[in-house]
Design a binder for these strands. Structure first.
Lengths: 204, 204
DNA sequence: TCGTAACTTTACCAAATGGTAAAAAACTTG
DNA sequence: CAAGTTTTTTACCATTTGGTAAAGTTACGA
């Protein structure tokens, strides 16, 4: 059913990656429809037909990016250890999310764009990949709360609030830069605030 | 300096509003570049040249929308009363933000799109309109904290976290719908969670 | 009710855009 | 190094899209 999928040559691997890297920045900033093949081509120093040589279409680039990023984007969620200290596990997750917001804002914005627009290309993935992971984490957190290790609250909304707050720093950076200008320790302040906030929330 | 600006006729007022309403939904869902004049025209039952009769260009519609919505979108921030009870004032603000997320998700997503993409058409407005309002509220909150009425924390990050959490319910609705499906009291659960969360955070 | 101004519709257009065809160049391998 | 394969480049093309010109229609005040 799937395509031939013979092994990729060195050049193929390299150039596909160059294209992904250029497309990521552009899709994240201008959205799918707002990005042209010519822009991507220029950003990675190739010619337009060359992109189509490596990817079937513009949409194929976008889908490939979303699929590639899905895994690493969700990996921190999977790294929570059910046998660890509950508060520290969740705070560790939050710290990793804050770090990702700082290190990979393009990825964060790509997802934000996709979800804000109703996830037209990612809904199946949300169902099949994110949802089981999410439900597993809900289970873990619920057990922690039932054991009295964390304050009782709706675990799904807890996770939503973590996503909301951590990703906000990447997705709404343009606004934050206006409101807290020239603050070279902005990231530091954000980290400290977020940690304090969820520590207070979660402590029984 | 500004254009003639003679009074608008009844038909002008009505039709400009029809166009705005149609464009709002489309821009919010597909972004500026992802929306075509033909789509807007069809959505409001007009013909394309008619749109250009009422607005100079597609961009003019977008700018007009952003400007119109800016005021009402920010109005709850302005409604905080420095002489009220601090905790109740902030919780009231949060409740209003949650309500807006529920009643006006299109507006929320329109802004989200704009900011995620670096606020290309709204940066000046953020500087001139949002920033002074923001700084005034920072001042009020700081005084409340200094008076010991609220827990001490970085007031700017507090506001960011309120925006993040409340707007998340509108902006990421597609994701939430996948993860909490068929939950007809989702809004209720969200309201209760958010109120509990910030009450606990802000109580000294 | 008539004339004019406001509004709508039809028929276009130029530029941009996603994508193709095929020749040219570069690389790989026996 | 020659033959075959992969990769790049040039020249196109059809469609879409933002916008215009101008004729046709409607609303409205004198």
């Amino acid at each position: 059913m799937t395509s031939p999928a013979r092994k990729l040559s060195r050049i193929q691997t390299e150039n596909r990656q160059r294209i992904r890297d250029a497309a990521l920045g552009l899709f994240a900033t201008h959205g799918f429809r707002g990005t042209t093949l010519d822009q991507i081509a220029e950003a990675c120093g190739m010619h337009k037909p060359n992109l189509i040589y490596y990817f079937e279409s513009k949409e194929a680039i976008h889908i490939d990016l979303l699929n590639m990023l899905m895994e690493e984007w969700l990996s921190p969620l999977d790294a929570m250890n059910p046998d660890g200290d509950p508060l520290e596990e969740i705070l560790g997750y939050i710290r990793r999310k804050m770090e990702m917001s700082r290190l990979y804002p393009r990825e964060s914005r790509l997802f934000a764009n996709e979800i804000v627009q109703g996830a037209p290309r990612m809904l199946p993935h949300l169902e099949s990949t994110l949802k089981p992971l999410f439900n597993r984490q809900i289970g873990i957190i619920t057990r922690w709360m039932d054991a009295g290790k964390l304050a009782q609250m709706h675990p799904a909304h807890l996770i939503f609030s973590i996503w909301a707050v951590t990703q906000h720093y990447a997705d709404f950076e343009a606004q934050i830069a206006v409101l807290l200008p020239g603050d070279d320790k902005r990231a530091r302040g954000a980290d400290e605030f977020v940690e304090m906030m969820f520590r207070k929330l979660l402590t029984p």
